[in-house]
């Protein structure tokens, strides 16, 4: 059916004579974004000089390795189990310590609690700096300070996790409507009271979501950290792959996968209960 002819003034038509429905001022940022992405892709490609043929010829060996990994070797189960529990403990402790610190720093960093702009900006920039350095680097630094073992892993993870929580928590706090905060301020309540009595309960479900997400990240980070010497399942995985003990490494990787999946489902459930 042909379009009814619109004669109303002000309507715009595209080249095919159809009525145009996009905004008057075209937003060009999307176009620039895609153009920028394309340029970056081409430049990176040229710089790295990837040998695609060689890469393709190695694809079958991916299947081969996974096939070997899938042949679980339960011979060293006690060692794997111990390392696994160590990793879980590191993840739990680093998340909990950082959560407490993150609540405190998040409160200071949120613009709407103390309303001291310079303070928020200072705290935020400091933690942005901490976040800019990757976790393995922090763990390596802690290893130098504290020696090998899980405590260095916890300390290193805490640096990054606290920085993460400070940012995410402060954002959740800033999402709380200023009107609600105002309503408590006018009762004469102190700023910290307003924070604990209004902001914290209102942001609660978001805080749980962030914590769950970070716990998951910390757990998988832990698996990597073992490889730099902070103990745990990562060490088992890397040493066994290097020693061609694919069966043992396979079990360890499988455990990591199952646990990560389990945490995710658990926190989805908790979040729906809290709503």
């Amino acid at each position: 059916m042909p379009m009814p002819k619109q004669t109303a003034e002000g309507l715009r038509y595209n080249k095919k004579g159809k009525i145009s429905v996009c905004c008057k001022d075209k937003n060009m940022s999307l176009v620039y974004f895609f153009a920028g992405t394309a340029v970056c892709a081409v430049l990176s490609f040229a710089y790295l000089d990837v040998d695609w043929l060689k890469l393709l010829s190695r694809v079958p060996s991916v299947g081969e390795v996974f096939f070997k990994l899938a042949h679980f070797d339960f011979g060293m189960m006690d060692l794997v189990g111990e390392a696994f529990m160590e990793t879980v403990s590191i993840a739990v402790l680093s998340t909990i310590y950082s959560m407490v610190l993150g609540l405190f720093f998040g409160m200071i960093a949120a613009e709407n609690i103390f309303r001291i702009h310079i303070l928020s900006v200072t705290v935020k920039s400091f933690f942005t700096f901490l976040r800019a350095v990757p976790t393995p680097v922090w763990v390596l630094l802690m290893l130098v300070c504290m020696g090998f073992g899980p405590s260095a892993g916890i300390a290193g993870l805490c640096v990054h996790t606290t920085a993460f929580f400070t940012k995410s928590f402060s954002q959740s706090f800033e999402d709380i409507s200023t009107e609600t905060i105002e309503a408590l301020e006018v009762t004469g309540a102190s700023k910290v009271s307003v924070f604990t009595n209004a902001v914290l309960p209102a942001a609660f479900s978001q805080l749980i979501a962030w914590t769950g997400m970070r716990f998951e990240i910390n757990f998988s980070e832990c698996a990597i950290l073992g490889m730099v010497g902070a103990g745990g399942i990562g060490y088992v995985i890397s040493s066994n792959i290097q020693g061609y003990q694919y069966g043992v490494a396979g079990i360890a990787i499988f455990l990591v996968f199952v646990f990560a999946f389990f945490i995710e489902r658990l926190f989805v459930k908790i979040k729906s209960l809290i709503k």
Binding site: L184, T187, G188, A189, S190, V192, S193, V194, T196, N197
Partner: peptide, 11 residues
Amino acid sequence: RLGYMSGLKGI
């Protein structure tokens, strides 16, 4: 009542 409560109690 928060305006009437001392520091920690209010918090």
